[in-house]
Design a binder for these strands. Structure first.
Lengths: 111, 111
DNA sequence: AAAATACATCGTAATATTGCAATGTAATAA
DNA sequence: TTATTACATTGCAATATTACGATGTATTTT
C-alpha cells in the first residue's frame, strides 16, 4: 500500500525511522559529504556540485531540514546551510546503544 | 520519478544509503528493538509481537537481511534471526566521523 | 501418508518517492 | 525600474514501497 502504519509503533520508533529516512538516499548522503568538506553552507554551490537539477536539490535540502539534520540561515539573497549536530548525536547514540546491547547478549544464532 | 539516480553517486554513498534505508521504517526499527530485547532469534515470535501480517514481517526481515543488519540461520523448521554487528558498526562509525568532523569546523551558520 | 507448523513468494492495490520543467518569490544589481 | 540571482513551490510522470490475501515449500508431528 505504500502507507506506513505509524500508529502501530511508538513515537520513538517513528521519530528514529524519520531521521534515518532523511539520510537514506545517496543524494542526501552526498549533500552531507559536501557540507562536511566545506565546513558549512553555500547553498547554490550544492547545485553546482551535484548532478541534479535545482528543484531536486531544493527538495532534498527540505527533507534534511525537516528531519533536523541540517539547518539553514538566510544571508541576503542566499541561504547558508550547515549540519545540525543534535540529531546526528541521537543517531550515533542509537547505534552505540545497539552495540552495547549486543555485547551483553547471552544467546546468539549462527556460530 | 521514484527512480534514484544511483549512477551519479559514489559506491560508498549508495551503500550507506542502502543500509540506512533498511532501517528507515518504524516496523524495522521495532524488529531491531525486539531482537535486542530477546538477545536473539525466534522468528515467528516477531509476527506475534508486531501488529503486522506474516508476509509483511517476512518482507521486512528480508530487507534487513539483504542490508546486512540481521542474519538468520535455519533451525529445523524455524529460522533464528539475530542482529549482524558489522553494518551497525559501519553506521556508528559514520555518525561518529560526522561529529568528529564538525568539531574541527571553522565556519558555521546560525549563531 | 496426512496434517500442522514455519516460513517465503506472488500478485495486487494504495500510497510514497524521485526528478524535473515551469513558474513563483524575494533580494540584490544594474 | 528592470534585470538578475537564489532559491522555493507546483504539477506531473515514472518508479518504489508498504501491506496483505492467497498460495507455495520444506520440515516436523501425528
Amino acid at each position: 500500500m505504500g502507507i506506513t502504519k505509524t500508529e502501530y509503533f511508538s513515537t520513538q520508533q517513528n521519530e528514529l525511522a524519520n531521521i534515518l529516512k532523511a539520510l537514506a538516499h545517496p543524494a542526501r548522503v552526498a549533500i552531507i559529504d559536501y557540507l562536511l568538506s566545506v565546513d558549512a553552507c553555500i547553498c547554490s554551490d550544492i547545485v553546482n556540485e551535484l548532478p541534479l537539477a535545482q528543484p531536486t536539490i531544493s527538495q532534498h535540502l527540505k527533507e534534511l531540514k525537516n528531519a533536523g539534520i541540517i539547518k539553514g540561515s538566510i544571508e541576503g539573497k542566499s541561504i547558508c546551510y550547515c549540519i545540525d549536530e543534535k540529531n546526528i548525536k541521537i543517531l550515533r547514540e542509537y547505534f552505540d546503544s545497539i552495540l552495547s546491547s549486543l555485547r551483553n547478549n547471552v544467546k546468539n544464532c549462527q556460530s
